Amino acid sequence: MKPLMKLCEETNQLMKDMLKQTTEQTRLMNQLINFPRELQKTTQQLSHIVHMVSPARQKNDDDDITFELNGIDISHVLRGSSLNTTARSLIPAAYSESASFNNLGSGEFDTLLGFIAHIHGLHTAVVFVDCQSIKNSLQQMKHDINKNGSSSYSSTTASIQRTSITIETPSILDEADDNDDDEL
């Protein structure tokens, strides 16, 4: 009976150890799941610290700097109210009115982010923190253009339908027929 009891105790201890390991693995998995969010928060905090610690940007002869995107000088484009607005105005200036993120060549997105930082007077690290938001906004441009194109088509069709007028000309014969019916 003692060997059986000892076996049960050892099995019980092994189960406790396995449960402890499983609990630890679960805790580590939860930390791993939350890691990207924590990393993003830390990156933002660090970028703000770097921005505050770095010397203030001075306007030396920045007017002589030219930025090219797609071989076109985009340094004439003015700053928008936000980083996304500025990015959305730079893409059409370099490509066409119907351009979006997909038109950017290799490495041009980084150039675009650098120019946005320059226009807004921000440290490049601050803009790179928001790069996913800027990328999403630029990708959305394609859908916005398609939506505006279809809505302008439907509004044009609706205005054409509203302006079409059918004019009926009175017929003398119809009036005569109506008068004949009254006499009967």
Score class of each variant (00 low, 15 high):
I33D: 06
D174M: 05
A56E: 08
T22S: 08
A125R: 09
I72C: 08
E97Y: 08
N30T: 03
T163R: 11
Y153A: 14
F67H: 05
N12S: 14
D130A: 13
I160G: 11
T157N: 07
D61S: 10
T111Q: 11
D63A: 15
T156W: 03
S150K: 10
S155Y: 04
Q58D: 06
H76T: 12
A56N: 06
T85R: 11
N60Q: 09
L138M: 05
E24A: 14
T43C: 05
E183K: 07
D144K: 08
I65R: 12
L32P: 00
D63I: 07
E97G: 09
L122P: 01
S96A: 15
Q44R: 10
Q44P: 02
L19T: 05
G105H: 09
Q31C: 06
S155T: 15
K6V: 12
E9R: 05
I65Q: 06
G107Q: 14
M52K: 10
S89N: 15
Q31V: 01
V129S: 03
E38N: 08
M29P: 00
N148P: 00
K142Y: 04
S89Y: 04
Q44T: 11
L184W: 07
A117D: 04
F115K: 03
D73F: 07
D110S: 15
T43K: 12
G105K: 13
D181H: 04
P55N: 12
S150W: 04
M18I: 11
S171A: 11
S150C: 04
S106N: 09
R79L: 15
K20N: 07
P36W: 03
D17F: 00
M29R: 04
L113Q: 04
T22Q: 06
V53P: 00
L184G: 10
K135V: 02
V126W: 00
K41Q: 15
T157W: 00
Q132M: 10
S171T: 14
S81P: 01
L78H: 13
G149C: 02
V77A: 15
S159Y: 04
L112G: 09
F67M: 09
I49H: 06
L46T: 12
I167W: 01
M29F: 05
I145M: 02
A176Y: 09
A94T: 12
Q13Y: 02
I165D: 09
T66A: 12
T124A: 09
Q40I: 14
A117N: 03
L7Q: 08
